[in-house]
Design a binder for these strands. Structure first.
Length: 134
DNA sequence: GCCAACGTTGGC
DNA sequence: GCCAACGTTGGC
């Protein structure tokens, strides 16, 4: 089992919208590193959902329901999507500030590589954020 | 709205 | 294959 974190601007695609939809394909990734991370996702892997710009917090947990396939919004074979479904909303959204302040999360890609929109998390990092959010 | 960080593009 | 110019992201 692998763990990931994806970013979305709430203005563009919010956690609320995601829950209304029940399932979505994660498109719009146009960065090779993020794309490579998407390709690592397997069905059943868990994904934290982070709101960038507005809120700047981890708001919920999603899971991978379909492994990567050609991005249906483009013909360019470079780009792929995965299907995600919401699993659970965090009782207490975990803010970027909290994550920064947490010693055990210092190495998290969210902080070390601010612009990356899809990243892999260590199991310990994933667990820690869940613990902070419950 | 600004700006730092950083990925991408294109000329050489 | 280097590197300057440019564009985008995202925190502040």
């Amino acid at each position: 089992m692998n763990y990931f974190l994806v970013k979305s601007e709430p203005f563009k695609y919010s956690w609320d919208q995601f829950n209304k939809d029940g399932r979505t394909f994660w498109d719009g990734v146009r960065n090779y590193q993020a794309r490579n991370n998407i390709k690592l996702m397997k069905e059943g892997d868990l994904v934290l959902f982070y709101h960038s710009n507005e809120g700047k917090n981890v708001v919920g947990i999603a899971k991978v329901v379909r492994e990567f396939y050609q991005d249906p919004t483009t013909d360019d074979a470079n780009w792929v999507v995965v299907d995600l479904s919401p699993v659970e909303t965090l009782k207490n959204p975990v803010s970027l500030e909290q994550i920064k302040a947490e010693e055990s999360l210092k190495e998290i890609s969210l902080i070390k590589q601010g612009r990356l929109s899809v990243m892999q998390l260590k199991a310990t990092e994933f667990d820690k954020i869940l613990e902070m959010g419950s």
